[in-house]
Amino acid sequence: MLNYIWFAMIAVSVLVGIATGRIDAVTDAAFNSAKVAVELAIGLIGIMALWLGIMQVAEKAGLINALARGIRPLARWLFPEIPDGHPALGSIVMNMAANILGLGNAATPMGLKAMQELQELNPEKDTASNAMVTFLAINTSSVQILLPATMVGLIGAASGALFIPIIIATSVSTIVAITAAKWLEKRKAFIQTPPSGEEA
C-alpha cells in the first residue's frame, strides 16, 4: 500500500513539476525535506531520552503493570492478541493518556515504547500486527481533550467555542478508526498470513 502511495506522490510531483515549470522547486523541496526529516529525528533524541528514562523508573516501581491491569477489560477487547499483564498494555495506556491531555511530546516516546513491546509479540517482524494497526489507527485519529497549544496560539480566546466540536469530531474519527482497523484486519487483502491471525 505504502509502496504505491509513495511512488505515486513522487511520480505525480515530478510530472506536475515539469508541466508547470516548477521542477526546480520540486528538487529543492526534496533536498530540504530530507534535511528537515533528520533535524526532526535528532531533535527527538533528548525528549525521547527524558521520557523513556521516566518510563523505566515507572516500570521498575510497578506502576506500568498496575496501569495495565486497571484497563484490562477495554484493552482485552481492543487488543485481544496482547497477553494479560504484558507491559505493552501499560505503554499503550500511558500513550493514550498523554494524547488525551494534549502532551504530544510525552505521547510519542511512550507510543514508540509500546511499538517495541508489540514487536516482541509480533510473529512476522517486517509486517504490522493487528494490535499495532489498531494502536496506530487510534493514535492517528487523535484522542485529545485539551485543545492543541498551536491552535490556541493562532485563534486565541475564540478557540474556547471549538472545545465541543473538536471533542465530537475526534470521537467520531476514533470510533471510525477502531471499527475500520478491526474490520479490515480480517479481510482477505490484509489478513496476517501465519496461523496467529486465523482464530476468532
Binding site: 500500500m1 505504502l2 517482524k125 499495532m132 496506530l136 475500520a180 479490515l184 479481510r187
Partner: peptide, 13 residues
C-alpha cells in the same frame, strides 16, 4: 521497529 509492510494501517488512518 523496522516494519515495512503496513497492511491496513493507512486505509484505517
Amino acid at each position: 521497529v523496522g516494519i515495512r509492510k503496513t497492511r491496513h494501517a493507512i486505509i484505517a488512518g
